[in-house]
């Protein structure tokens, strides 16, 4: 059973198509990243599934059911910015959240402790720094120990220590069996934290599936051999190479898979009478991959999806 299933979701703001036929499924127990540059439709998607925005077309289900207020009560959500009553203290704000959810009122101190705000529980929200507001919003989403967490840019406004704390928190929550849906524009964050993802660009879905399948491409091997004119021609016959790029007098061999043995390449070249003076494995830079993914023709690649 997917926790969240989104089908052909579209949203139009006047002339702007913010979301264009996006479909994906969030499997139970995953840390699901919604990745995309600014303005790609991440928050719009989350806003629609939390019923604060109305979709132009398309449908979604939570827990295999039609969306309802009851299903939202089972989800802890931090959407875009921390939204609290400025004149109320941290604990009173959480009391309101717990009151609406109908659960978690006895957990207020413990969730505040979990995000490191316990000693500030009686301070007014208006006195909080940006990072503290963000922590309070995360605390609110933890109330009632929801089985699903929706976190929109959860590390926004946090310092490096805070960022790593929150990432650890997400991992530990995931370890407790919770499903986490997280929007981020940071590739690095999605790669570090998420197991599954959807990649959005300008409201269109570029890819969805396991992070390992989308972000990791085949190996890149750099080779060089001084004075051998037809290195490219010779190595071109080696199995598994999808592309060869010349760079600074050396060659970048781009493979389809990630189980390439450098020894075999060396052996192969040697058998063809070429002595390599350079042979090294280069992992493709993630940022390069991100740019590559988001810059290619924006057509969905549902083939990347695999059942669990």
């Amino acid at each position: 059973m997917p926790i969240l299933s989104v089908q052909q979701l579209s949203k139009r703001y006047g002339p702007i198509q913010a979301l264009d036929g996006v479909s994906f499924e969030v499997p139970k127990g995953t840390v699901f990243g919604i990745l995309g540059p600014n303005g790609s439709g991440k928050t719009t998607t989350l806003g629609i599934v939390m019923d604060v925005l109305k979709a132009t077309s398309g449908t979604y289900t939570f827990f295999d059911q039609a969306p309802s207020a009851e299903s939202r009560q089972r989800i802890g959500t931090l959407l875009e910015t921390p939204n609290f009553y400025h004149y109320l203290s941290a604990s009173k704000n959480l009391k309101i959240s717990a009151g609406i959810k109908g659960k978690g009122e006895n957990e207020i101190d413990s969730v505040l402790d979990r995000v490191g705000l316990l000693q500030r529980k009686d301070s007014a929200f208006s006195t909080f720094s940006l990072g503290m507001k963000q922590r309070l919003a995360i605390a609110a989403s933890l109330l009632g120990s929801p089985e699903v967490l929706v976190l929109d840019e959860p590390t926004n406004g946090l310092d490096p220590v805070g960022i790593s704390e929150i990432r650890e928190l997400i991992k530990s929550l995931s370890g407790e069996g919770k499903t986490i849906i997280m929007a981020s524009h940071l590739l690095d964050e999605v790669e570090k934290v998420c197991t599954h993802m959807v990649l959005l660009k300008k409201g269109k879905m570029i890819a969805t599936g396991k992070v390992s399948e989308i972000l990791t491409t085949g190996d890149v091997v750099e080779i060089g051999a001084a004075g051998s004119g037809d290195l490219a021609g010779v190595i071109g016959a080696f199995p598994g190479i999808s592309k060869i790029e010349a760079q600074d007098g050396r060659l970048n061999l781009i493979f389809d898979s990630t189980d390439i043995s450098l020894g075999k390449i060396n052996e192969y070249c040697f058998s063809k009478g070429i002595t390599l003076d350079h042979l090294s494995m280069k992992r493709k830079n993630l940022e390069t991959r991100f740019l590559e993914l988001t810059q290619e023709a924006p057509t969905a690649k549902p083939g990347k999806k695999k059942p669990n």
Binding site: M50, D51, V52, A69, E70, R72, Q73, T77, L79, T81, N83, F84, Y85, H86, S97, I100, K101, G102, A140
Partner: peptide, 21 residues
């Protein structure tokens, strides 16, 4: 208008009230 300013009208819905409530 406080609810709009603080955007708590969104949060109340997100937390599990219906819009009608």
């Amino acid at each position: 208008t406080n609810e709009f300013t603080y955007r708590t009208h969104r949060q109340n819905i997100i937390d599990g009230w219906t819009r009608l409530q």
